[in-house]
Design a protein around this nucleic acid. Structure first.
Lengths: 146, 146
DNA sequence: CTGAGTAAGTTCAACAAACGAACTCACTCG
DNA sequence: CGAGTGAGTTCGTTTGTTGAACTTACTCAG
């Protein structure tokens, strides 16, 4: 009995869930955004079992979020670099960041924040409707066939 | 050897991952947003194994995203309703929707879209910096202690 | 030329979680 | 009294996770 797959469901949430719906993949992506590139860098940063990391990196490469690049021929050594698709995934992590910061801490704020390297100002992710620039009112949302 | 937990890591992404980092929880939440409330409605909509649904609903209730409400005393019958925390979670699903729609379909668009019930116009989720209203430039982001 | 070191994995045994079918429980309704 | 219903629980099987040990393909210091 294999784990149920959602990668052919006709819903964008289902297909995204199929990819990141496990404990490690979002954190592997987080580390990639923090500049981690090599196998043992991910191991040291996350404490993820080696076999699981192998599996997740392979999946992210075949799905096109990471690219495996040889940076040394002999002995063979590799780096995992974010692709355009992988970079675009930051939006999902940012939304998770925002919700987690708002709701998964008690009264205090989390001990870390996001800042803009150039302006030094805090960056606070928010999800809006691209057409109006306003936050989305869930109660008014409907799903329709295209 | 229990599944590794992230619910006490000092990072909002890790804590959010601990909650939704499995293949069913985001879809259970999706169905809740589509108006599903009863146990067998979730079963019918998702095809999720009953024992797994029991586990996920319990988790979402203890985490405060759903509230279990008795709607009939005898025989005892229940509904699962979104709390404020659960409603706020829509942002994460919206970001997943956007990324999935942009990157997990080939050239076509997904067969469904989000619309505003009142205006009828399509709603296109986007993640921005709340302070600037602009999309976030990943390359300029840094993580800092608060 | 040997032995230590390193990056990037693979292998393995123990355990946990997911799967799907069948079963239970507390009722109501015809 | 028997069928039906909503909300689960139980169970045997299969799949996935964990962590430790091992492997491979080299380089470099002595």
């Amino acid at each position: 009995m294999r784990r149920t797959r959602f990668d052919d469901w006709p819903c964008p949430i289902a297909r995204t869930t199929d990819l990141i719906g496990d404990w490690w993949t979002p954190l592997v992506m987080r580390e990639a955004f923090l500049g981690r590139k090599r196998f043992d860098e991910f191991i040291d940063a996350l404490g993820i079992p080696r076999a699981v990391l192998t599996d997740r990196l392979d999946r992210l490469v075949t799905e096109g979020l990471l690219r495996k690049v040889t940076y040394e021929e002999r002995p063979p050594r590799f780096e995992y670099k974010l692709t355009e698709k992988g970079l675009a995934f930051y939006d999902v992590l940012a939304a998770m960041w925002r919700w987690g910061a708002d709701w998964q801490w008690g009264d205090e704020a989390p001990p870390i924040k996001l800042v803009d390297r150039d302006t030094g100002k805090e960056v606070v992710p928010a999800v809006v409707d691209e057409n109006t620039g306003q936050r989305i009112d869930v109660r008014r949302l409907r799903v329709r066939p295209r």
